[in-house]
Design a protein around this nucleic acid. Structure first.
Lengths: 332, 332
DNA sequence: CTGAAAGCGCTAACAT
DNA sequence: ATGTTAGCGCTTTCAG
C-alpha cells in the first residue's frame, strides 16, 4: 500500500501542531483564516485523505452496521438489503453484509467477527437452522451486552429487542378474505413449504381463520410439504380429485411457483378448467403470468423501518467514549 | 454501550503486563503454560472479547473489502454478491456493501467513504452513469494510489487493473450459432435495451457476426430501444410484419421479459404461430416458461474469481505497517 | 519467561 | 489563535 499522508506529517511540514492541522481541516472557528487556508491547500497538494478508521477508533464508534441475512436469492431479502443500505448511506452509515446461507454456524461466526469492534449495531434475519433448533443464545448475548440490534422477518418472540415483520397472520387472513369476498372463489387450496417456520404457521392460521369466518363455505384444504416434489405431487392429486377447486393460495414463493406449474399442467389436460394462483411471492412473477395475485410483502418499508429503528437505538445509547470519561472523572 | 473488558484491565487484575496477556491469549510459545491457562480462564470469566478493530488499526489492515455495485434487484448481481461474500468470509474477510443505484455521485461518495481507511481493497461494478459519461477518475485515483481493486461485469478498458467479465461477444456469438445450427431457427430477431452500454454493444456484435457466418441466412434484424414500452411496440410491429420470425434473442433480462410478453400476445392472436425466446436472463425465468433458452452468465464463477483476484493483489501488497517500519529504521 | 515502551492516526480537553 | 498532552486497545520489538 502506498504511503498516505498523515496529520503529523503535515504538521511537521508546516511547523504547526497536529491539533492546529486537525482543527483547520475540520474548519474550526478557533483557527485564523489564513492558517486554515494554508493548511487546506497544503493538504490537497499532499493528496491528504483523512484516516476515518483511526478517527472511528478514537471516538469508539464505527458508523458501521452489521447485517446478517440468510441469503439474497430471494428477491424479498434483496429488496430489504437494498433499502437498508440506502437508508443507512443517507445517514452516514456503512453496512457490513453477511449471509448465513441458513446455517447457524455461519450466522454465529459472522456475528462474532463483526461484534469484535467493527460495528455499532446489528440487523439480523435469523437462519432457518436457528429457528428450527430454537437456538438464539448468540442473539441473546448481544442483547445482554446492550449491543443495539433489530431483528426482521424471521424473529423470535422470546427475545427482548426491536423487531420488524409483516403481519403474517393479518396479511394471509386479509388476502384470503379478498379471494373469497371480492374475487368470489369458492374452493381454495392453500399450499406451503414453510409450515415448520414461525411465520409459515401464522400464514396458515390466517388462511384457516379467514375460511372459518365464511360458514357457508365448507371446503378448505391445506397442503403442506417439505420438498418441492412432494408438494407438487400432493397438489396434482388434490386438483384431479376435486374438480371444483378454483384457486390456490401459496404462502411462500416456491409454493406459488409450484402452484403455477401444476396449474399449467392441469390446464393442459383439460383446456376449459380455470384455476387462479395467488400468494406470497416476488411481484415480478406477475411479469410472466398476469393472472397471478401477488401479496405485497412490503420489503421497502421493512428495510427502511429496520434501519431507522436501529439508528434510533444507537443514538440513544451512550458511546463507549463517554463511559470512559466517567471512569476517569471518578478516578481523578 | 456496555463496558467491554480490555487487555489493560485483565493485566491489572492478574498483576501481569499487557503484553503477557496479549501473548497468552494468542497462544504464544513465549508464555508458560500455567500463565496462559490462568489468563485464558480469567478472560473468559470477564466475558473478554478482543477488540479486533483496534488490532486492525494497529496492524494497518482491516480485513475488510469494499464492494460497490449498481443495485441488487438484478439476480445476476445478487448472485455475484453472494459468492463474493462467501469466498471472502471463508478467507477471513468482511465485506462492506454499497449500492450506487447507477448514480455516479453515489458511487463516488461510497468509494471515498470506504477509502478513508475502512477497507483493504475494492470490488466495483461501475454505474451506468459512469459508463455513459466515461467518467472514471475516481477509479483511476484508487489505481494511482495503488489501492487494490478489481472491476467486474461493467468495466473500462482504459483502466489498468484486474477485471472480470463474461466474454459477452463470445457468449452472444455462440448462443446465436447454437440457435441457428442446433435449434434450426431460420429467422431470429435480436432485442436490446442496453445498446448504449459497452457489454451491450459486444453482445449485439456477437449476434450479428454469428449471423454473418451463415451466408444462406439473409435475414437478420436487430431491435434496439431505450425504454421497455418502445421496445415492446417495435417488436410487436416487427412480428406482425414478418410472419416467418421463429426466434427472439434478448441480450438483457428486461428485453427477454418483453420478448416473452410480446410472444404470448402474438400467439394469442394466432394460435398456431411458434416463436421461441432465448437470451441473457435469470435462469429462474425458465420456471415460468420452460421453452425459454437461458444464457448462463456464470455469476458464481465471476463472484469467486473477482474475490480471488482481489485477495491475491492484497496479499502481494506490503501493508502500511512494514512501510512505516522502513522509515523508522532509516531515521534511527 | 515476563515486562517496558513505543506507536498506529486521530480527537479533544486543557493549557498558553 | 495555537500548542500540549493524554489516550482509544492492541501488537511488537527489545530488554531484562
Amino acid at each position: 500500500m502506498q504511503h498516505r499522508t498523515t496529520l503529523t506529517e503535515i504538521s511537521k511540514a508546516l511547523n504547526l501542531s497536529v491539533s492546529t492541522i486537525s482543527k483547520s481541516l475540520s474548519g474550526s472557528s478557533e483557527i485564523s483564516l489564513p492558517t486554515k487556508q494554508r493548511v487546506k491547500e497544503f493538504a490537497k497538494q499532499c493528496n491528504y485523505v483523512p484516516n476515518n478508521f483511526a478517527a472511528s477508533f478514537r471516538k469508539g464508534c464505527t458508523n458501521t452496521i452489521g447485517l446478517v441475512i440468510p441469503h439474497i436469492i430471494n428477491p424479498f431479502y434483496a429488496k430489504v438489503l437494498l433499502n437498508i443500505e440506502n437508508y443507512l448511506d443517507q445517514n452516514g452509515y456503512k453496512l457490513i453484509t453477511c449471509f448465513s446461507n441458513d446455517s447457524l454456524k455461519k450466522e454465529v461466526k459472522n456475528i462474532s467477527k463483526m461484534a469484535s469492534g467493527y460495528v455499532d449495531g446489528f440487523i439480523v434475519c435469523v437462519s432457518k437452522e436457528a429457528q428450527l433448533n430454537n437456538e438464539y443464545s448468540h442473539i441473546q448475548r448481544l442483547i445482554t451486552n446492550q449491543i443495539p440490534i433489530v431483528l426482521f422477518d424471521r424473529i423470535c418472540e422470546m427475545l427482548d429487542c426491536d423487531k420488524v415483520i409483516i403481519d403474517d397472520y393479518k396479511t394471509a387472513f386479509d388476502t384470503t378474505k379478498h379471494l373469497i369476498e371480492d374475487k368470489k372463489f369458492k374452493n381454495i387450496i392453500m399450499v406451503s413449504l414453510i409450515d415448520n417456520l414461525h411465520h409459515g404457521k401464522l400464514r396458515t392460521k390466517g388462511f384457516q381463520d379467514a375460511l372459518a369466518t365464511e360458514k357457508s363455505n365448507g371446503k378448505a384444504k391445506v397442503l403442506v410439504a417439505d420438498t418441492i416434489e412432494d408438494l407438487r405431487q400432493k397438489l396434482v392429486v388434490a386438483l384431479r380429485n376435486d374438480k371444483s377447486v378454483d384457486a390456490i393460495f401459496g404462502v411462500n414463493e416456491q409454493a406459488v411457483i409450484q402452484a403455477m406449474h401444476v396449474t399449467r399442467h392441469i390446464k393442459s389436460e383439460k383446456a376449459n378448467r380455470k384455476i387462479i394462483v395467488a400468494g406470497f411471492c416476488n411481484e415480478r412473477l406477475a411479469d410472466y403470468d398476469a393472472s397471478l395475485i401477488v401479496v405485497n410483502q412490503n420489503a421497502e418499508e421493512i428495510g427502511i423501518q429496520t434501519a431507522k429503528l436501529l439508528l434510533k437505538q444507537i443514538k440513544s445509547t451512550p458511546v463507549r467514549g463517554s463511559f470512559i470519561k466517567k471512569i476517569n472523572n471518578f478516578l481523578s
